[in-house]
């Protein structure tokens, strides 16, 4: 994919931060409203795909790089499993919600029944949302990026062979 015209690039640069903020909102409020790590991660990855379409795969590969994205994916997986293992140490079982009701970070128990939503609840669920969000963003975007870059590379090679 080569880069598109200047109008498309400018509009993509304006819209990109808003989509990013919306995706981060969906990830951060995963324990209160519809959404969570998977959905917000898909939204942020689609924002990155917009960047890829507007600016071309060469530019995106040079600026972001596939190595850095795979490091981010490993970081997300590491935090997810580390939180589950902390449940084994502080609680009794794997995936125990050891932060709920502990008056620590995210430790409050909400009012039972309908309430207006308090950010400081949920135990380990918001932290796991963030870990899975990082993982899904990096995973989906590295798939799109590597496919676009490789097909661009193949096209160029075929053009050289013919010309």
């Amino acid at each position: 994919m080569s880069e598109m015209s200047k109008i498309v690039r400018t509009i993509a640069a304006i819209v990109f931060p808003f989509i990013m903020i919306y995706g981060l909102y969906v990830i951060a409020h995963g324990h209160l409203t519809p959404g969570g790590g998977f959905q917000g991660g898909a939204i942020v990855a689609s924002a990155c795909a917009l960047l890829l379409v507007a600016y071309g795969s060469m530019w995106t590969m040079r600026r972001i790089g596939e190595k850095r994205l795979s490091v981010f994916e490993s970081i997300g997986a590491f935090f997810f499993i580390a939180l589950a293992l902390l449940g084994l140490f502080f609680g009794a079982v794997f995936f125990n919600n050891f932060l709920a009701g502990s008056s620590f970070l995210f430790g409050d128990i909400p009012m039972v029944g309908s309430n207006t939503g308090d950010m400081n609840t949920g135990g380990v669920l918001p932290l796991m949302n963030f870990a899975v969000g990082i993982k899904v963003v990096a995973g989906l975007f590295v798939i799109i990026l590597v496919m676009a870059y490789a097909s661009n590379h193949m096209e160029k090679k075929r053009g050289e062979k013919q010309g």
Partner: peptide, 26 residues
Amino acid sequence: IYTNLPEDVSIPRGMVLPVPQALTLT
């Protein structure tokens, strides 16, 4: 989801089942 839930919803009977939705998500 309990955030801003309408008042006239009976608690177990008025909500859809959460487990199939979680499975679909994964």
